[in-house]
Amino acid sequence: MPSNESKATPLLTIDGLHKWFGAFHALDDCSLSVGRGEKIVICGPSGSGKSTLIRCINRIESYDAGSIVFNDVTIDDSRSATQARKGIGMVFQQFNLFPHLSVLDNVILAPTLVKKESHQVAREQAMKLLERVRIADQKDKMPGQLSGGQQQRVAIARALAMRPQLLLFDEPTSALDPEMVGEVLDTMQDLARDGMTMIVVTHEMGFARQVADRVVFMEAGRILEIQPPKIFFDQPQSERTRAFLSKILTH
């Protein structure tokens, strides 16, 4: 488990981030740094800014103040940031696979277009990734023919095809039928074991307990607590965290 020495050279540093949606203060002075190989789980009630925070990291959302530095590059609309962003992958709640492309074409699209890899190389690598997420036998199907869990695993393979240094997960299991949550969490756990740096927004507290190096608790746009899971779950420091945990863990 990476600890202090990796935090010395963080892969990602978020510092004093503010974001407004009109008059709504979506992110209020958020700061977080993530070391290489570290697994962060972000949780909190809905509307607390979790998704907004990770969407700012790869510039799906812009921010109004503060900074995000990834690999020593400030993430904004500059050319260097666009270049740096290629090292950040993302997995969405609604999968967002491209419905007009086959599973295989979904995975090789970005490597061939963005990294200009040859079709052959991209295809070989895509097959390896599809095997890794255990869905290689479905490579010629269209996304609409797959179950939610299968689609989400393809989406993970698609993100991995760009060889990202950081993977963002925005509630990856929230849109799944209950019996499919496990297969996606297993895949994510495999990735974690292989040393991928991950930031995961999720309500799966079991996953947080097992996989996270640190758990971030957000409410009303603020980061209220950042703790290793053991402390977070067993001795939460803030009153708000205790209230939140008591709500979601009693069921």
Binding site: T82, I88, V114, M162
Partner: peptide, 15 residues
């Protein structure tokens, strides 16, 4: 076209 399609394309660094 759902916004998610554009977000996915953005996340994959497509121009």
């Amino acid at each position: 076209i759902p916004a998610g399609q554009l977000e996915a394309a953005h996340a994959l660094s497509l121009s």
